[in-house]
């Protein structure tokens, strides 16, 4: 084992004084293997690795949101099926119309329309959005690091919360959208009936008051995307329990997500191993006074270092 590692990493007579991992035949082998995996991903019905995110469940979001509230000395929120239904409908609408905003730029439909449409009459409501995060923890942390989103999570006057986690094709990309909706029922209870007109006058518009200015930059793509991008699960719009609503609960997704996570972590490890091989090769080549004609170690090191850092950035999604 020691000899093998030595042969792979340390320049010596056995490997022509260059780490075997950096030889052209090995570099060609990496390319061949990655080409094979790439073709396999294309041929097999697998989602792209970061598209269907891991560890995204309503349960997890509910738990993390209440955890943050408890940490800040606030009462926990009650899970509300109507708010969750509204959140799922909102996410489906974003996929269908291809917009990333609080308001639908095509018909100006607001989050409040979805909440009322699901039969939740409120005196106070709010909405947090996120897309393409790798896990629930990362999403909630990103919300907590943004003042307006944090204000929503930590608003003492909210009583209920609901979540919509929907996977689908968003403008051609495999995407996970998370919608978190908060509410305080009108007169202390959620009324599953037509909204009372007076309720609209008492609504506190938390985030969306500043949102409409962003709409022009998020104008959706052509109508063709609407039908193409409608590969969304679930399609059900009926209020359900928190477990029914989770989009990523299809059994096949679990295997795909594990495979995706494995591929992502292996990619990180592969780049790290190349960086280590470069450092060792550079050090021992200097120590042994080896003169050779190869690419610059420092250049490869800078390049691979930047790619390594970029993989961390790729795991982070966007919030709104």
């Amino acid at each position: 084992m020691n000899n093998l590692l030595h042969h792979l990493f340390i320049p010596s007579e056995n490997n022509n004084y260059r780490s075997k991992l950096l030889h052209l035949d090995f570099l060609s082998l990496y390319l061949a293997v990655i080409m094979f995996i790439s073709i396999a991903y294309r041929l097999l019905p697998l989602p792209n690795i970061l598209g269907l995110s891991a560890d995204q469940s309503t349960d997890k979001y509910y738990q993390l949101t209440n955890q943050r509230r408890i940490e800040n000395g606030l009462a926990t929120l009650t899970f509300n099926a109507a708010l969750s239904s509204a959140a799922v409908n909102k996410a489906n609408d974003m996929f269908a119309s291809g917009y990333w905003a609080h308001f639908n730029p095509q018909n100006n439909k607001s989050p409040w329309d979805f909440i009322r449409g699901a039969g939740y009459s409120y005196s106070l409501a709010g909405e947090n959005l996120a897309k393409n995060f790798s896990d629930a923890e990362a999403t909630v942390n990103a919300w907590m690091n943004s003042t307006s989103h944090r204000d929503n999570i930590l608003k003492a006057s909210y009583a209920d919360v609901g979540f919509g986690i929907v996977n689908g094709k968003f403008n051609g990309d495999e995407t996970t959208i998370v919608v978190q909706m908060f509410g305080t029922p009108l007169k202390g209870k959620a009324i599953a009936a037509k909204p009372v007109e007076a309720a609209e006058k008492t609504v506190t518009f938390l985030k969306p008051t500043t949102i409409p200015t962003n709409i022009p930059t998020n104008v959706p793509s052509p109508i063709a995307t609407i039908t193409e991008g409608l590969d969304v699960t679930p399609t059900s719009t009926t209020p359900a329990t928190k477990y029914d609503i989770v989009a990523g609960s299809r059994p096949t997704d679990k295997t795909a997500r594990i495979l995706g996570q494995l591929t992502f972590n292996t990619s990180h490890l592969f780049i790290l191993i190349l960086i280590i091989a470069l450092i060792l090769d550079f050090y021992y080549a200097y120590k042994l006074n080896v003169v050779r004609l190869t690419g610059r170690h420092l250049a490869h090191f800078i390049f691979l270092g930047i790619i390594f850092i970029s993989l961390f950035i790729l795991k982070k999604g966007a919030i709104l």
């Binding site: 570099l27 060609s28 390319l31 990655i34 790439s38 690795i49 990309d173 990619s267 690419g295 691979l304």
Partner: peptide, 25 residues
């Protein structure tokens, strides 16, 4: 500049490009 050096840059670059393609799209 030697052909081997050009090949080295190409192999590293294309390998990483394919890797990112698997991850991202």
């Amino acid at each position: 500049l030697r052909p081997k050096i050009v090949l080295e840059y190409f192999l590293i670059g294309i390998t990483i490009l394919l890797l990112l393609q698997i991850i991202l799209i």
